Amino acid sequence: MTSHTYRAMREFLRSMDDALPGKFEITKEGIVHDMTSPTKPHELTALRIRKRLEKVMPEELVAHTGTPDVEDLPEGIMRHPDVMVIAEADMEIQGAFDPRTLIVAVEVVSRSNPDNDWVGKIRDYPLVGIPVYVIFDPRTGSGAVMTDIHPTPDGPRYATRKDFVYGEPVTITDWTISTENLPRYA
């Protein structure tokens, strides 16, 4: 994707602002539109993960669930993780976060577009330098922690994947949190 194409997509999304429902992201393949608003299990999962992480992380770090997006202009990627672990000091900027300032990106799999989390973000997050990517999947009650970015002929990829099921503790970098009582999609 050319820089011009990426900037045109970004401007289009900005012009849409709140005109269309759902969430928009820009990937190496183009615009991803998750048309449905997050469901209560999705939002509750993100909330519980955020709160559990903040109990075990150092005070200078936050598990952030709001805006802005993370954006890598050279790669032409704009994403919005459900939970971003980032130093509070790195949030003191205007505009999108630099993805290389994230310590962890957490995604709660969308019922309507699971490939966005299980395929697209597994490709994009190591490409933009996010060192740890964690997926929680309310469809299956399972997830995975991806780490150890390494080069491949197709670009950077995560070398290590540790799967977990809801009910087991999960270790994310140096912090272990419970996955008990995380909601599932009905």
Rank of each mutant, 00 (worst) to 15 (best):
P99E: 01
I93S: 04
D137I: 09
G22Q: 05
I149K: 07
A159F: 07
H64I: 09
Y133H: 07
T147Y: 07
L127G: 00
G95E: 01
D69Q: 13
E59L: 14
D90T: 08
E54P: 00
D72M: 08
M78T: 12
V104Q: 01
V134Q: 01
L53M: 09
D98A: 10
E60T: 14
R157G: 05
P81T: 04
P126I: 04
M84G: 04
F24L: 13
S178M: 08
D117A: 00
R161Y: 07
A87V: 06
K40C: 09
V108C: 09
D82K: 10
E92Q: 11
R7S: 07
T173N: 11
D69V: 14
F12A: 14
T101Y: 05
M16N: 04
T39E: 09
T101A: 11
T160A: 11
D90Q: 12
A96E: 07
I93H: 09
Y158G: 00
L102S: 02
P21L: 05
A46S: 15
V170L: 05
V62Y: 04
P183T: 10
A89H: 05
H4R: 14
E54A: 02
Y185I: 13
L13Q: 02
H42P: 01
F164S: 01
N113D: 10
F12Y: 13
E25R: 03
K23W: 06
D163K: 15
I31V: 15
I93V: 15
T36K: 13
E92V: 04
G66C: 13
T2F: 06
V134Y: 02
D154G: 06
T5V: 11
S15T: 13
F164T: 03
L182V: 03
K23E: 09
I172P: 00
I103A: 11
P41I: 11
V109N: 00
N113V: 03
L13H: 01
W118Y: 05
P156G: 03
A96W: 02
G95R: 02
R161S: 13
D98H: 03
V70N: 00
P151L: 04
D72C: 15
P126Q: 03
I172Y: 00
M84I: 13
T65E: 08
T171Q: 04
S37P: 11
A89L: 08
L73E: 15
V165N: 05
S142M: 06
W175Y: 15
L182P: 00
E107Q: 09
A87G: 13
V104W: 03
V106N: 02
D72I: 07
D69C: 14
E168K: 08
T160G: 03
V104Y: 02
P114L: 10
T147C: 06
R139C: 04
E168W: 06
H150A: 15
M84W: 06
R10H: 10
E168L: 10
S15R: 14
V85C: 07
R79M: 14
G143T: 08
T173M: 14
G129V: 11
H150S: 12
G66T: 12
P183K: 08
E92K: 13
N113G: 03
P153R: 12
T171F: 03
Y185P: 10
T171H: 01
V32F: 04
P41V: 12
I26W: 01
R184M: 15
D82C: 11
Q94R: 13
V85E: 03
S15V: 06
G76W: 04
S37G: 13
R184N: 10
V83P: 01
A186Y: 05
Q94I: 12
